[in-house]
C-alpha cells in the first residue's frame, strides 16, 4: 500500500505527471471513438441508399 502511495505521488510531481497521461488518454481514446462512430454512420448512410451495395467494396458500376 505504501508503494502504491509512492507511485501515485510520483516523488511529489504526481499532479503534473498524471494529468499529462490523463490528457493523452482522453484525446487518443476520444479521437479513436469519434473516427469509428463517424465511419459507422457513413456506412449506415450508404446501406440505406443502396442496400445491395452495403457489403460491396467495389466501385459502383
Amino acid at each position: 500500500m505504501e508503494s502504491l502511495q509512492a507511485f501515485w505521488d510520483m516523488g511529489g510531481y504526481g499532479h503534473f505527471v498524471w494529468p499529462a497521461y490523463g490528457v493523452v488518454a482522453v484525446v487518443l481514446i476520444g479521437l479513436f471513438v469519434e473516427s469509428r462512430r463517424s465511419l459507422k454512420s457513413a456506412e449506415a448512410e450508404l446501406a440505406a441508399l443502396a442496400p445491395s451495395k452495403a457489403e460491396d467494396t467495389d466501385d459502383e458500376t
Binding site: F32, S35, S38, L39, A42, E43, E45, L46, L49, E60
Partner: peptide, 16 residues
C-alpha cells in the same frame, strides 16, 4: 478508419 470513412462518404455523395 478515417480513410475508410472518407471513401464511404464519397460513395454516399455519388449515389445521392
Amino acid at each position: 478508419i478515417r480513410i475508410r470513412r472518407e471513401v464511404t462518404a464519397n460513395k454516399v455523395r455519388a449515389l445521392q
